[in-house]
Write a protein that binds this DNA or RNA. Sequence first.
DNA 1: GTAGCATGTGAATTGTGAATCACAATTCTT
DNA 2: AAGAATTGTGATTCACAATTCACATGCTAC
Lengths: 205, 205
Amino acid sequence: MPAPKTQTLQRQEQITQAALDLINVSGVTGLSIAGIARRVGIVPSALYRHFNSKDAVLDAVLDLIQQRLLDNVTHVRKKVRVPLKQLKLLFTRHIAMLSESQAIPQVVFSDAVYNGQPDRRAKVAQIITTYLKEVESIIESGRQDGTIRKEVAPATAAVMFLGMIMPAVVLWNVSGGTFDMAAHERTAWPAYERSIAAHPSEETS
Amino acid sequence: MPAPKTQTLQRQEQITQAALDLINVSGVTGLSIAGIARRVGIVPSALYRHFNSKDAVLDAVLDLIQQRLLDNVTHVRKKVRVPLKQLKLLFTRHIAMLSESQAIPQVVFSDAVYNGQPDRRAKVAQIITTYLKEVESIIESGRQDGTIRKEVAPATAAVMFLGMIMPAVVLWNVSGGTFDMAAHERTAWPAYERSIAAHPSEETS
DNA sequence: GTAGCATGTGAATTGTGAATCACAATTCTT
DNA sequence: AAGAATTGTGATTCACAATTCACATGCTAC
């Protein structure tokens, strides 16, 4: 029984999502046209009605990832107003997001990216840079309103913000979920806050 | 003309090193028996005289990486005595090491690791954990001699130490060398130091 | 309702890379 | 120097995955 016909636009979404799911399970290496097709419920060759190549699918996945990341930022911006709180919330949400689905680090670190066409590497670079710019902009607001110290360089602080997240996620993934993410959240944030805030919430020294 | 015969032990070293080099250039995906063999100067099938499988080669590469990482720590320990200075030196050397050869992040993040046999993931976990333990132990010395604040949790501080390095390396790789690593070194370290040191070297606030 | 377009299907093609094998050349032992 | 062990070689097999193609079927406009 053939799969019901579906508009290319919807199929593209289904395919991109299926690809992301598949990467979650099997990594970028395990990403195959056949695998995606199976998940979508069509036959491999049918996939080519909606994407020109596997590479095109990967590009779409990258777009999806970027969208997810930026959605996260937008949500946080709406939810809270104080820059420091925005950062903390963003931190929490990110940790949650990345430990649920390891696909994002998988893709970002995959050598399909590093060693594929330069286009793709550039795209990943752009995704990360864009994201960092958002974080920087939050930090900059904090500097303006005095909640973050003036001597803090937004660029560096943004990279270190990533630095709170990345190793934790890697440890989480590699340890097979053993790494105590909650504890990391509790201890890492105060440390980060101390290094940038004008008046850390708890004066411990 | 056949390649000169060479003892398995030497060949294994050549092969492991060649594999690491190849990963530097083409990533883990680009790692092929044929590619390694070409670099070593033998024919693909000859490689099986010295390794049972490609996986075995990858395992050897992991061992090599672990050795390099720990050598780094040992060297730093010998070179300097003050814990904070040890950390700073370790930071510098790490950045240098990883930006020269992107192979290490490539392997550590590769899905050959994440989605291969659990053995391998466990091995990577052990490598990272062991390394972190070393960093923790340096931090612990600092707490003992009073140069690092008592409230600093060694485990968290060690993870954040990684956090200074990881994103920088990723940015460096992804940006194709555009990211200003030297600037990061100059700005990130003081920030990190401030968050753990008892008496930061420059009081700026 | 029918022509034309969009979507789905199975078979066939092609490429790639790991692994095996029988044989050759070299080195070691004695 | 003979025989055994080690290492190197080329041809070959095997599995797997991307892509193409000719054909089938459903959908839409007129």
